[in-house]
Design a protein around this nucleic acid. Sequence first.
DNA 1: CCCTCGACGGGAGTTACTTCA
DNA 2: ATTGAAGTAACTCCCGTCGAG
Length: 221
Amino acid sequence: MAVLPNTTCLELTISIPGLSSSSGEGGGVSMKDLDINQIPSGGEEECMEDEDESPNGGPPRKKLRLTKEQSRLLEESFRQNHTLNPKQKEALAMQLKLKPRQVEVWFQNRRARSKLKQTEMECEYLKRWFGSLTEQNRRLQKEVEELRAMKVGPPTVISLHNSEPLPASTLTMCPRCERVTTTATTVQDNGGPTAGNSVSANRTLSDKVAFVRSRHPSAAC
DNA sequence: CCCTCGACGGGAGTTACTTCA
DNA sequence: ATTGAAGTAACTCCCGTCGAG
């Protein structure tokens, strides 16, 4: 657990509907200058007790921006754990001077958005992988054509792995799509475009790839 | 106009507790 | 008195969406 470095007053900027920020003239308080810890009319240092109403009883406060420090701590906490138990939530909320509900919402949003990001990355990965497989397939088909045209001697196929000639016995023909492949072919051999991906991302992708492969009668494809 | 992100409503799942046959 | 099913409340999570900045 990180320790908040002696925070005396967190800088929360808020917007209060109905509170004019500019009114055209100078001298007004900018929205960005509002500090949630400086609640007018004798507010305490806590910002977590004012429920859903602005201090003057107006419409409920709509949105606040978290400070950099709050965001940093939340991110740090999220890195350690993507979910919080009630105690952790309470402690974090207290540390950040937020309502537990705000911490909860932040984690929910964070989970949702990192999942979205992850999905986008996987989509991109699969697109690129599909492209590389298409290209590989095209090359192999061309090679088959050439071998068929020659009709002489055992075929020589260069391994994608180490550029060594593969023995003909390692070649198989997929009965379904009639494409030639090698029995030693693996996902890694296909040269997935993002070799530097994180472990978790790879596992997720591997699962998906395994699923896709399992639906094909020929595991070699 | 588009994007980010804090907030909300609603639905689903889980758990603890109560009621009743 | 005990037990199991049904009902309910509280809580959490996810999803979709809104809207301020």
